[in-house]
Amino acid sequence: MKAKTILLVSGAFLVLTVALFLTRKVSAQAPTPSDDQVNAIASQLFCPVCENTPLDVCPTTACHQWRELIRQMLAEGKSPAAIKQYFVDYYGARVLSEPPVTGINWLVYIVPPVAFIAGATLLFLAFRTWRRMGKEPAAGSASSSPASNDGSSPVTGSGNVLDDQYVARIEEELKKRK
């Protein structure tokens, strides 16, 4: 009877120690994630409380809590992508630094390049017409001497059409200054 009790108690003690050891080991396996790991994710998120300030430098209590949540989720072994997704689900797409490419948000990525390409095309077409119009009347003299590429003495000499225009403009300018 007595021996049995001792056995039982010591057995229980053993189990407890092993259990304690095991839990300790488990917690030792997942050390608290460092500030840098937390900030790496936080710097890509924006908290609705302080708009336009990234989470890693936002001083409000709400943002502090968010960072702690990131730390906790990292400790649980969640991946950065999963953590970001959690924040999107929980607080909406506004937490991301760029709108996700869904629905109307397509526009944010499409409009600037389309506008730029449209502008470039217009400019190119305009160039072509200008060149065609420019070449015809002046074709004779155009090839003779290209305008000096040194702006510091373009006025002197050569006497081609372009420089004549140039002289005319400068004379005009001088007249205006007086």
Binding site: E51, L96, S97, P99, I104, V111
Partner: peptide, 30 residues
Amino acid sequence: GVLIVCFWGVIFPLISELVTGQKVTVGPPF
């Protein structure tokens, strides 16, 4: 081109909020 990017980035959250009722952030990476 830079102007269009900037203007669009500033104005888009306004459009998004009016159309979908949801705010979005257009941040530095964009």
